[in-house]
Amino acid sequence: MNPKDILKITINLTIVCVLAGIILASTYAKTEPVKVRAEEREKQLALKSLLPEADKISEIGKVQLIEGKPEGDIYAGDKSGQTIGYVTDAIGKGYSSFIKMLVAVDPQYRIKAIDILSHGETPGLGDGITERWFQDQFKGKTVDQLEVVKVETKDKIQALSGATISSRGVTNGVKDAIIKLEGKLKEESTKAQGVTEKSPENPGTSR
């Protein structure tokens, strides 16, 4: 191979790379804002479906779910000025991935619904966590009831057959998120105690 050949090959490959780079960059510039907006909209829709009775859902704070990961968000759902529930991000460690979820609870921290946003569990086994019946088990449960068992159960969580670890991942993630949510809200309400005592609460705005 003489130097001229090397130069030719280099130029050839460089042109291919530059072309690919230009195509990728322009596609990215065009699609990324659309994608971010779509994701935001999807999250809003997911929040809405978790707290359908709420007429306003707003972010009220952040909570550290897993050490070294970005903080999760906490949302409060209001109806006619009264808080009817909270939604929190949740992360559980499954068999082969982190399972990202949203958990909705009522003001007494009983679960209203859960939603799995993303996961990378084994197709055919662990991905059963997205099935309706599995997620519906969580409805109305309190933190103390969140325990995975391998038999049919009414007041605990029944594991998916062949995917106990994924089931446990979801359950522990939900449990952890609710405990942290409760801790965070209690801490804030004790801080705010002084303020509320001075200014009497507004009479209800409901009609």
């Binding site: 195509i23 990728l24 596609t27 990215y28 699609t31 990324e32 659309v34 779509a38």
Partner: peptide
Amino acid sequence: SVIDMTMAAYSR
């Protein structure tokens, strides 16, 4: 990559 990005944006 182009298909991936385009689908992620326009065809959720």
